[in-house]
């Protein structure tokens, strides 16, 4: 029994927090999909994103965890909710029943595939804590992944310019 505890990580506070965070993340993600009201779905997604931030924190990636909450929960999801409230979307708003069944089949297939992949690829053993300080992340972003970093910046700039152009057309 004690060997089981040691292997599962339940002998430490971090282990308990991991299982708590992981369970809440999974429940939040499931409820995001299963909620009939779009607004509740978006709120459950915030729960899921915050729980993933807890998992990052347990891995020592404090910068990524803070960014996860700041950017996703604090800004992007707020904009999502903002749009849902602005359009006043009710349950099943704008979804055709035919599309819904296709989406269900595709979604379940993708979920089954990824679950199989994840379960078969987990080898056991503890995850390695990383150096998650701002300095380490900065060195990686502006060193090893400089090209990808800059390419994504250009991509975002294109999206911003595109949004401005679309908005301008509406005005004139």
């Amino acid at each position: 029994m004690s060997a089981f505890f040691a292997h599962s990580g339940l002998d430490s506070v971090e282990g308990w927090f991991f299982y708590l965070g992981a369970a809440v993340a999974v429940v939040g993600a499931l409820m995001t999909v299963l909620s009939r009201s779009p607004l509740r779905g978006a709120l459950w997604l915030i729960v899921s994103l915050c729980s993933v931030a807890v998992l990052y924190l347990l891995l020592g990636a404090s910068f990524v965890a803070a960014m996860q909450v700041l950017v996703y929960a604090g800004a992007i999801m707020v904009l999502f909710i903002f749009v849902i409230m602005l359009l006043n979307l009710g349950p099943d708003a704008g979804v055709r029943p035919a599309y819904l069944s296709v989406a269900k089949v595709l979604g379940l297939g993708a979920a089954a595939y990824f679950t199989f992949q994840i379960v078969t690829s987990v080898s056991g053993g503890k995850a390695q804590a990383v150096d998650g300080t701002v300095k380490a992340v900065g060195t990686l972003l502006l060193g090893n992944y400089l090209f990808a970093f800059e390419a994504i910046s250009v991509l975002l700039l294109v999206a911003v310019v595109g949004a401005v152009v679309l908005g301008m057309k509406r005005l004139t």
Partner: peptide, 19 residues
């Protein structure tokens, strides 16, 4: 080590409450 970011991040949760 990310103290300032933490404050900014956690106070942005209030927006969700207000909405």
């Amino acid at each position: 080590n990310v103290g300032l970011l933490y404050v900014l991040a956690i106070t942005s949760i209030t927006v969700v409450g207000v909405l």
